[in-house]
Design a protein around this nucleic acid. Structure first.
Lengths: 351, 351
DNA sequence: CTGAAAGCGCTTACAG
DNA sequence: CTGAAAGCGCTTACAG
């Protein structure tokens, strides 16, 4: 074995750009340019640099690169919470896009903690020092925060936001809610309730207003209205949906049809129904938005939205911006699709 | 307004350590020491430095700090997948611990992609350049990978691994499976099947062997055995559980009781039962491990494990190591608890 | 197309 | 307890 051990096994430290320069008989500067694919490098030099680099197993020090060049090679993925199905899908899809572009994904969950939110948005310079860009996933922003972000050196992209001065991807929430409600109307229902998201919960998905609007609008087209008592605002969770449906059953009266703003709320609603000896669609038609994997298990009728696609698309747009793409901010809306399963049907009073 | 605008609004660049040194009339070196809470700084100097730093809104450049000091202030959270309930819980819990310690969390999902796995574990030096430590969440490692990690400059901690040379936290999977199976046995069942995790899926939770062992062991204590046909290996997912239960019903015969290695597999199993006009506990007793939030909706009897606690604990241990704690690696097992709901009951043949 | 020089903002020994 | 100096490993103008 003597003498055969490659030096890389005994070297405590990694090869530096200096080693590559030495081995390729070129200057550090040329090596740097070649390695980053910059122009003004002869084919010969390019080849020698690449050979030397791979021979030495050279990898640039990101710390040095970011100090000298100001780029960090990382992006922040910011979510209101990382624990829900929706955000878990979105986060992984985004992370995959970034990883394939060689970017590290720094995950930041706001967790509904005001101090965390303040720590992040209150010192964007500190953030900008650690990442080149920010991908906002379902984070609802105040005007001040939008301003601050736009003014910062950070590139920004978002999912589920509109009217922002950066690239954003989402679905048309008004239309999705309209489609869900229209399905209920088409079935012949005339009496409705909506399990809407709790809007006070700043830092959560900013879609509740649009979904409520789509719902109201669809009803209006049929000259119908919701009684304010039938608009129940609770967090978008199993627990929230459970409480909302319980409130409906116990106090406000169960309507013919219920539109839940998200699948998880519908799951909670289903649980509440069952505990009262009721079920969908027998006693009430129930529809939601998302298409969570459990929806197929429970037979929930829902409007499917492409969560991973939205996040991946937004991540792509951010990656391109980081690579220098310029131009006006884009706002993409991905299509949704109604999936009819077993929690909706015609009301009993119909023939 | 003239003259009132604080300079921080017009300054393009942030204050550096030099500015703090100048303002406090101390050397850069002393400032650096004071800011990091190192010894050998007089009270007076400490105070002057802190005043100057806060007056200037100074924040150290992490890039410079990592280049000069070798520490990155980041940790990697590595998971087999980020999309499942289990990992979403674990990731957020860990991220919270790290964030509260001022550490950035770089999320790395292996996604079952061999190239990603190779990119990460095949070049630990590159990883070590970007993070100080690694938290492995449910990542099953080969011996070679354990060796490489242990030999790297990275601090390591894990959740759901045992026999590793670093701090690890988990549950006793053998015991959890034993408890689940014993519950079935106590009910009077004598004929079993197990929906086990697919072990070929390297890079996934490495608990399938232990859970199968706990199952087999509990049966053995009652002088029972499982027929090999009744050990069905599928991925730990709704889909996997669905396929496994379908296979049981269609081809291998439905036993009296089924133990699913995780709740999500049980959900899929429940769906398969329903599609065949069957249900639990009427036609089969079904139990699992996890206590997923949907389990309460579906009434699934299960052995609850504290997912977030395990991850947070492991993250704490890693944080302490990064802060210099030494000592032998710890291996903690958190307790589990059987939650009896509605998918298990005595077999029909009993009185 | 290529290179010498300065500098990014810290930390680390080493003197004092 | 404090400071001057060197250096971490790159990138960025600026000459050639």
């Amino acid at each position: 074995m003597k003498g055969l051990r490659p030096c890389s096994l005994t070297d405590r430290s990694r090869a530096t750009i200096r080693d590559v320069a030495l081995l390729s008989s070129l200057s550090i500067c040329t090596v740097s340019r070649a390695l980053r694919g910059l122009p003004n490098v002869s084919e010969d030099a390019q080849r020698r640099v690449e050979d030397a680099a791979s021979k030495l197993g050279y990898r640039a020090s990101s710390a040095a690169a970011r100090l000298a060049g100001g780029r960090t090679g990382s992006v922040a993925i910011i979510v209101p919470r990382a624990t829900t199905w929706f955000f878990a899908q979105a986060v992984e899809a985004a992370e995959e896009v970034f990883a394939d572009s060689g970017l590290d994904s720094v995950l930041i969950s706001l967790r509904g903690r005001a101090d965390v939110r303040e720590r992040i948005f209150g010192d964007l310079d500190a953030l900008a020092q650690r990442v080149d860009g920010v991908l906002l996933l379902g984070v609802d922003l105040g005007d001040d925060e939008v301003q601050a972000l736009a003014a910062s050196p950070l590139e920004v992209a978002s999912m589920g936001l509109s009217g922002v001065p950066w690239d954003t991807v989402g679905i048309d929430d008004v239309q999705a809610a309209h489609a869900a409600t229209s399905h209920l109307l088409g079935l012949g229902h005339g009496e409705f309730a909506i399990l809407a998201a709790d809007e006070d919960d700043r830092g959560t998905v900013g879609t509740s207003g649009d979904r409520l609007a789509g719902f109201t609008q669809a009803l209006a087209e049929h000259h119908l209205e919701v009684h304010p008592d039938r608009i129940i605002k609770e967090p978008s969770s199993i627990e929230g949906g459970y409480r909302a449906m319980t409130e409906l059953i116990d106090n406000r009266g169960l309507p013919e049809a219920v539109f839940a703003a998200c699948d998880e709320a519908a799951f909670g609603a289903l649980k509440a129904l069952r505990e009262h000896g009721l079920s969908a669609p027998k006693d009430v038609s129930l529809i939601a938005i998302d298409d969570h994997p459990m929806s197929t298990v429970l037979g929930l009728t829902t409007v499917a939205q492409p969560v991973a696609d939205q996040a991946a698309f937004a991540a792509d747009l951010l990656t391109e911006r980081l690579q220098g793409r310029s131009g006006a901010p884009q706002d993409h809306r991905l299509p949704v699709a109604l999936i009819e399963r077993k929690t909706t049907r015609r009301p009993r009073r119909q023939p």
